[in-house]
């Protein structure tokens, strides 16, 4: 089963790293195939940023995503630009701190969550919003196991931030434990 995921927002939100973590969870910890692509503007921070992940049990040849199954939107621009492209039956995850206007779509599931605010509440900083978003995405889709995501995350984030990121990730998992 091939699943196509787009993480989109602005540069500095850590979405390229988040995409690599998700793909590594699939490749290194679950033996699946995955590809990752990134695109961003020339700015170091603040420009548009897009991270594309494909996860599959089969070989992945064509590595481009035209209509994702899953979209994470971390800015209003990202939602406006890519919201329409999500496949029927797909999933859109929205950070309510940045997104105020959501164009309704009846053919996809839309989850609106305070992703960045959860990061601030748990770690005192917005920097772990990318990890919270991954926790939400994996809880909702089961695309990789939570343990795989956790291991991949711990392996990739700067060592000094491991504890904070783990706290952020578990807070995201907890949202869904309570049903």
């Amino acid at each position: 089963m091939r699943k196509e995921i787009v993480l989109s927002g602005y540069g500095g939100q850590g979405l390229v790293l988040a995409g690599i973590i998700l793909a590594e969870a699939a490749v290194i910890y679950e033996g699946k195939n995955a590809t990752h692509n990134q695109s961003y503007g020339p700015e170091a921070r603040g420009g548009a940023s897009r991270s594309e992940i494909i996860i599959s049990d089969e070989e992945i040849n064509y590595p481009e995503i035209e209509r994702p199954d899953i979209l994470l939107a971390m800015t209003q621009d990202a939602l406006d630009k890519y919201g329409e492209s999500v496949k029927e039956g797909g999933l859109i995850i929205i950070d309510t701190l940045y997104i105020k206007e959501v164009k309704p779509r009846s053919d996809v599931e839309i989850y609106e969550l305070p992703i960045t605010e959860i990061s601030i509440r748990e770690t005192g900083k917005p920097l772990s919003a990318n990890i919270v978003a991954l926790g939400v995405l994996v809880s909702l889709t089961g695309i990789v196991k939570r343990e795989s995501l956790e291991a991949a995350m711990l392996n990739r984030v700067p060592p000094a931030t491991r504890d904070l990121n783990l706290k952020a990730l578990r807070a995201a998992f907890d949202i869904f434990k309570k049903g």
């Binding site: 690599i20 793909a23 490749v27 195939n33 995955a34 590809t35 990752h36 692509n37 990134q38 992945i60 590595p63």
Partner: peptide, 9 residues
């Protein structure tokens, strides 16, 4: 540029 930049297993 595709093969250069894509990450995969």
């Amino acid at each position: 540029a595709v093969v250069g930049h894509v990450r995969e297993k």
